[in-house]
Simulated assay, not measured.
Amino acid sequence: MATSRYLIGNASSFCTKTPKCSRIASRHLSRAFSTTPNVQVAPVSLASQDAQASLTYCTNLVRNFDGPAYSLSHFIQPHIIPAYMAIRAFNIEISRIPDIVSNTTIGQMRHQFWKDTINKTFNANPPEEPVATLLSAYMQDTGIRLNKTWLTKIVSAREQALLRPGFTNISELESYAESTYSMLLYLTLSAISLNSLTADHVASHVGKAAGIAAVLRGVPLLAFPGAPNSHSNNPAGMGLPMTRDRQRVVNLPLDVMSQCGVREEDIYRNGGNAEGLRDAVFAVATRASDHLITARSLVKEVNSYQEPSHEFEHLYDEGHEYGSQNTDTQQPQEVRKRDLQQAYGVIMGPAISTQLWLDRLQKVDFDIFHNSLRIQEWKLPIVAWWRNRQNTF
């Protein structure tokens, strides 16, 4: 951090011949030895005009660029909608950085801007940015303090993906999904003041499934970045013009590609007809499906008062502090069931959305380039409504 420097001299030595110069010198002395007053930032309420304008901005951003999240917001508790929209809008702003910057250096600057924005927001001094204003207002009005670490992890994971696209192995892909999509669910759960090991455990698996599916959806877009991005009902570049010639990337895990005999050059030449590509997509999609199956199994175990079949993998990660209940088995069964019921609306949506897309992928025999995979899932609201009534996903 740069050190502030002041040049403080003997002002009376500049000029002492006239009363006017003496008065000027006196003013300089007063300024040199005065103390800068502390500036108190007035808290912003959710009812304020600025917060309401920020909510409108974030809602429109989610509606236009993340249709599934907007549709599923109807199953979120109404009182956390401002936090939900701010968190989802934050994710959109971070994820579209690669599409709006001319090079990675500028991309890093944008990521640093968001890290600084997070710090200022949690210091009750948010910049004039809609996401920051809305998050600050929500925390101010409700007294609920979201986890700054999780927000920062999302930015760092996206920045790393910008600097080094692709994944060495499928475990690296899962780690990326945990650091992005699972973090979004943790943040949303914390917005309802739910600090539940069980809920976070289920959310972790759902988030990993959603993150892996998102990476699969991006395969055609990164392999052929000049093609229109009609995927997930988003226009090209998340609605913004492409400002750089993006390098072709195949973001399937390298270990899976090697096992299935897939070569990048073959994908660039033949697209979905590349040898071994469907097998590789199947292997990665199976891992996403496995996480959804595990999440459902956990819910079933909790609802039937059984002990969880395995512990939460990220139990000791930063941000997951649960007091005396350090393991799933130490949590009273009634408490676990109650927590899941409270978290259902948050977790159910991404699980259903991901499952529907995986079902469509299976119907086209894992042809990741099939045009039907780029069409918005019109059944999502209906299926979500029905599953909500059944309390399943």
Score class of each variant (00 low, 15 high):
G67R: 07
G143I: 07
P350R: 03
N229L: 11
L252S: 07
S12D: 15
S22N: 14
R374Y: 09
I100P: 02
L197P: 02
G319C: 03
Q376W: 14
T286S: 07
A177E: 13
Q330R: 10
P220A: 02
E265W: 00
Q355P: 01
Q390E: 09
G143R: 06
A161G: 12
A384Y: 14
R296M: 12
L185H: 12
S73V: 08
W150I: 01
R269M: 06
N64P: 00
E159A: 14
P228I: 02
H320T: 00
L135N: 04
D359Q: 12
S12I: 03
V62W: 03
R338H: 12
A214E: 15
E264S: 07
S372T: 11
R269Q: 12
G261M: 07
A343Y: 13
L134V: 12
R374N: 14
E159M: 13
G349L: 10
F33N: 14
T133K: 03
D66G: 05
P350G: 08
E311M: 02
L277D: 05
Q49R: 10
A288P: 11
L254N: 12
E178G: 00
L252F: 09
L240T: 03
I24Q: 13
Q376C: 13
A132N: 04
K153H: 15
P82F: 00
L163M: 11
S156F: 05
M139R: 12
D365F: 04
N10C: 13
I267Q: 03
R389P: 05
